[in-house]
Design a binder for these strands. Structure first.
Lengths: 199, 199
DNA sequence: CGGCTTGTTGGCGGCCTGTCAACAAGCTCG
DNA sequence: CGAGCTTGTTGACAGGCCGCCAACAAGCCG
């Protein structure tokens, strides 16, 4: 509840951008796109509303940056996946996915389901990129080097399964992590051995 | 391009409601929630804007009705599913699902992915109901009578897979119907025989 | 034909967004 | 150290959309 004794202060453009963006990430993560006004972001950032447009352009442009932040995931542990046989590698990639999703749950899950506005072309493209990244991670984990478009599409489908299953766990709270892990592992094993081969 | 020689005409409430709703379904189906204004709906329906609020309340209330219309699917053929063994029944339910989705593709797929505003509580509930219906259809088709919450949640997850896979076929156009059918059948078979049992 | 019910309209107030000219914080140079 | 200048920052303006409501009139009824 800082009443913000608003002495006007100058910041470096990068610092100001970052400050506004962090507030926007928090607000858009809590509520949806339509429920957050640029006035809200400006007020909580202690800044004039016009400054948001100055730095980010349109409200939708700001939202796009927010989505990219929320969907950006440290692809670190990808290299440290074990070298065992297929079931072991599948177990590892599923565990990695569940770790990432549960850690960023309130933002990642919200963003990947277009928390506020699907149907928009640019938003869809940003989400699609995140799905691509996850699909690539799955494919490399299970050891596919030559990726045909068909195979890639099937991996994207699997990411859809992983997302909806994770939501049953994290948002609706009816599945346990173990159940989710088991479902996703067995399903991926089936898809790799029986379906991906035809791609 | 009817210039609408606007002689004011009285309709029965039901007829007026239906007329406005049909226009809204078309517009919201073409563009997203934010891209359609109540002014647009009113203009194309040849009606004053206030009448929309009179009949439906809020714009979001109108959108809810539209979503319910788009997600409502004739559950006819459910009773006419074959009585063969598991693979046959799975084949039938997958085919039925793909028929429904492809027939209503531009509306059902758009609505089920919250074509315009996820995160809203009431919209989420409407979508969740549609997922429940599809999940129930799958469960009855594969012959599960006692449905535990866990089992239901897993069926919902599968519907998520079916939705994302169908989108790779209908919207992105990279999978063929046969590929989708094969993927969904084999995956459902695996889930039924290896995963659902633990529920 | 006159009155009445009620479907229908148009405008008001409020909120939100994008833009832009004016303002001033803080650096630079004489 | 002060004047000037760069540029980060502000506040107000115009346009659009939404919810509401009092007034209007279409069509029925006595």
């Amino acid at each position: 509840m800082s009443i913000d004794v608003g002495q006007r202060r100058r910041f470096s453009p990068d610092a100001r951008r970052e400050q506004i963006l962090s507030v926007a990430v928090r607000l858009f993560g809590e509520r949806g796109y339509a429920e957050v006004s640029t006035t809200d972001v400006a007020r909580e950032a202690g800044v004039a509303r016009g400054l948001i447009n100055h730095y980010f352009g349109t409200k939708k442009d700001l939202y796009l940056e927010v989505i990219r932040v929320m969907l950006t995931v440290p692809p670190v542990a990808l290299a440290s996946l074990p070298d065992g046989d297929l079931p072991v590698r599948i177990d590892a990639i599923v565990g990695w996915f569940l770790d990432v999703v549960s850690r960023h749950s309130q933002s990642w899950l919200a963003a990947i389901t277009a928390g506020g506005m699907a149907g928009d072309a640019e938003v869809d493209r940003a989400i699609s990129s995140a799905i691509d990244a996850a699909a690539d991670a799955v494919l490399t984990a299970v050891g596919f080097s030559a990726v045909t478009p068909t195979l890639h599409a099937m991996a994207r489908s699997y990411v859809g399964l992983a997302t909806s299953t994770a939501r049953e766990w994290l948002e609706r709270g009816v599945l346990t992590r173990d159940q989710v892990h088991r479902l996703l592992s067995l399903t991926l094993l089936t898809m790799v051995s029986s379906v991906f081969g035809d791609a």
